[in-house]
Every structure is written in C-alpha cells, then in structure tokens.
Simulated assay, not measured.
Amino acid sequence: MACTCPGRVHPGIAMIFVQIVFGGINIVYKLVINDGMSMRVAVAYRLLFGAAFLCPIALIVERNKRPKLTWVVFIQIFLVALVGGSIYHNLYLASLNLTSMTFAAAMYNLSPAFTYIVALFFRMETFSLDNARGIAKVAGTAICIGGAMLLTFYKGTDINIWHTKINLLKHHQNTVGSTKQQVMGMAIALIACVFYAFWVILQAKINKNYPCFYSSTALMSLMGSIQAIIYALCFDRKWSDWKLGWNIRLISVIYLGTLASGLNITLMAWCIAKRGPLFVAIYNPLMLLYAGGVLIIAGLYTVLWGKSKNSRNKNQLAVLPNNSDQESSGVAVSPRSNVNKDSAV
C-alpha cells in the first residue's frame, strides 16, 4: 500500500514551495563559504541533518505502512543517494566555486532538458510532434529553459540604491580567474545536471518498489551523508573544519538539512510519483524568481527601516534647536522672590 504525503496538496503547489526553499540555497552556501566552511563539509552536514530530521518522522508516520526492504530497493536507494546526494551536491558546489552564481544557476536551469532526454531513454516520456499535447510539451520545455537562460544572462543597468558591507561574492571574486577555470566549471555543472536527471528517474523507480516517501528519503539522506562524510574526510580532517558553533554555519546546515534536503526531497519524491520526473524538473527555473524576490523584499524593507530611522533622528533634531534657543537667547528669568522684592520697593 502506498504511503501518502502529509496533507492533500496539489503537486504544483508542493513544487512551488520546493522552489521557494531552493531559492535560498545559493545564498546560504555563499554565507558559509564566506565564513570559511568547506563546501564538502557543508554537503556532509546537509545530508546528515536531513537524515536526523526525517528518520524519527519516518519511524512514527510510516511504522505500519513500510513494505519489506529488499536488496534491490536497498541498492537503488544507495545509487540514488550517490547520484542525487553526495556526487550531485559536490559537483554543483564545485561549479559554483569555479564559475559564479549566475552560471551555476543557468546550468541548473538546463536540468529539465536533460531530464526529458533521460526520461525518453528510459521510455518514461514520449516525443511526438503529431498532436497538440506533444508539441506543447516540447515547446513548453524549450520556452521555459529559454526564458530562464535569458533571465540569467541578461544584464541590465546597475541600480545602486544604498551601500552595504555585505558581499556574498567576497571570496568568489578571488576564485573566478582564467577562462580555463570557467570552462571547467561549466563542464562540471553540465555533468551535475546529468546526475540530477538520473536522480529523478531513479527516484521514480524507487517509488514503485518502495512507495514510502519519508522512509526512502531518510535512507537516501543517511546513505548520502555517509558517502559525503567519507569523501570530505579525504580532504578536511581538522576539527576546525567540522566544528559548529552558535553561528551562521549551524543556522545554514539546519536550513539545508531540514528544509532543502529533508522536507523538499520528500515532496519531490511524492510529486515524482504523482506526475512524473519531468513535472518536477520543469519547476527548477522558478528558483531564480524566488531567489531574486527574496533579495528584493529584503532590500525594500531594509531601505524602509533605514528611512524610518532617519525620520526619527530628524524629528529629534528638530526639537533640540527650540530648547537651545531658549537657553541662549540672553533673556534672564528672575526668580519669583526677586520680582516681589523689586515690586515692593
């Protein structure tokens, strides 16, 4: 018996929520990288926190619904964890480090095309230009990718509203160098897109054999975290590389683990079961809109907060001259007793 997703929500609404959460991933990654955290360690913590978040939920919600875990399903989940977990995230962050957020986002927007091609190879999608449905599917995919690429690469006029000391590209500006590095970064990003396409296809296979989304995602996160930890320990063996305190690193890995890897992957697995791999991949370009929207709203309220502070300061300064004028006007006010004495004389 298939396990159900919490709440009866429409798959489209679920994917919109998924992309809203994904919209903050690049920003969060840049914050931890600027703080000096290794990207490999960040991936390991992301998957580890995702497993810690989902395992209790899976044990409680699906305790009487899980089918028997066979070796075939176990190997499939292991491959999904490897393809869509540890390898994909490390490749994506490597491309982000070698190129820029712009190019990484642009390559990420190509994932629907790769997913469509891989789905055709596995006969999970059809290619047909003989009817309106087939034409709409092909044309819609191309238009969506083209619009996302245009939004990514088009550079308009820079608008400097205010100056801030926060620079998300502080370390990245030093890493982006030769054309060779950028080409290598773009090649790595393309490979990451291929791995993403295989992930959604394999996830669709798992949904048929093991249709419990919490349990499968928890196992995937657990196996992926073990893989990512082993890979990270090959390069980052110091305790300082892994230490988490009450700082931006802890907040970031909690966000990445619970929301990005925990809740989001569960919703994506459920949407794949409901509508197929291409349905999930086609929503990826929305991440650009939501990431930009978050920054715009944050900037708007920051400016409004600053203007309200300036208005308060101006009001306070406007009151001070009146008091100073009274004190410096040179008009001495005699005590009441002295006035009475003078009037008596």
Rank of each mutant, 00 (worst) to 15 (best):
I25A: 09
A332D: 10
Y154W: 15
D35L: 10
N323R: 12
K165C: 09
L263F: 15
S328H: 13
P56H: 09
G50C: 08
H171N: 13
S128W: 01
N109K: 04
K341P: 01
K274G: 00
E327Q: 11
N97W: 13
Y210E: 02
M268H: 05
R66Y: 03
T175K: 14
D342L: 13
L259W: 06
S221L: 09
M184T: 12
I297M: 15
D130A: 11
V9S: 11
A187M: 09
F22H: 02
V331Y: 15
L110F: 11
V200N: 07
L190E: 01
S334E: 13
L82C: 10
L317H: 10
F114P: 00
F74E: 07
A142S: 12
I201W: 02
L202S: 06
L93I: 09
T70C: 08
T70F: 11
T141S: 07
Q173D: 11
M124T: 14
P277S: 13
N209K: 12
I297Y: 15
I248H: 11
G85D: 07
L98S: 02
G134S: 05
Y283V: 02
T126Q: 07
Y108W: 12
Y196A: 01
T258E: 05
G156H: 04
L150G: 04
K170T: 02
W305D: 02
L82Y: 15
L31P: 00
T258P: 00
K274C: 01
L267D: 01
V331A: 06
F127P: 00
I77K: 03
N97K: 15
